[in-house]
């Protein structure tokens, strides 16, 4: 039994702002944004909710595409957008608070893009 329906609409980057605006006007709140690497492309999910109705927008973009920021409509989106930039290296244009890659400081640049793992070497100094 499904707990809830989760409709997802795939849209083009050019339509993003317009669609998000509709959600904003419709009184939806932003639940989360995230990126997933699928092959050479990235999927970016924007999740919205109103009265427990959960809906998603999805962009499917090649790695080097610049995505417009939605922080003009949802002020709090900067946490997700900075995170997306720092972990996946997705360029987001026009963020209200831009940390310039210093939101999450990591050992490797853009670690979630083809993630690497530590070897089996000794984990202690002895």
């Amino acid at each position: 039994m499904k707990i809830e329906e989760q409709p997802t609409t795939v849209i083009a980057v050019a339509h993003l702002i317009g669609r998000v605006e509709q959600f904003r006007k419709g009184g939806f709140r932003l639940v989360q944004m995230n990126a997933t690497q699928v092959g050479d492309e990235f999927e970016i999910n924007y999740s919205f909710e109103k009265d427990y109705r959960f809906e998603n927008l999805r962009l499917i973009i090649p790695a080097e595409t610049e995505v417009p920021s939605i922080s003009g409509m949802y002020w709090g989106a900067f946490v997700y957008e900075n995170e997306m930039h720092d972990l996946f290296g997705i360029a987001v244009k026009g963020m209200n608070i831009d940390f310039n890659g210093n939101f999450i400081r990591t050992k490797v640049r853009y670690p979630f893009r083809n993630p690497t793992f530590q070897g089996e070497g000794p984990c202690q100094r002895k």
């Binding site: 639940v31 989360q32 995230n34 997933t36 690497q37 699928v38 999910n45 946490v79």
Partner: peptide
């Protein structure tokens, strides 16, 4: 957020925790 591709390893797990969304 979980995404699988029919293998024993998931493609993506994304954990969005309440503290992150409470930062703004």
């Amino acid at each position: 957020y979980l995404k699988g591709n029919g293998t024993k390893h998931l493609v993506r797990s994304r954990i969005r925790t309440p503290t992150l969304t409470n930062v703004p």
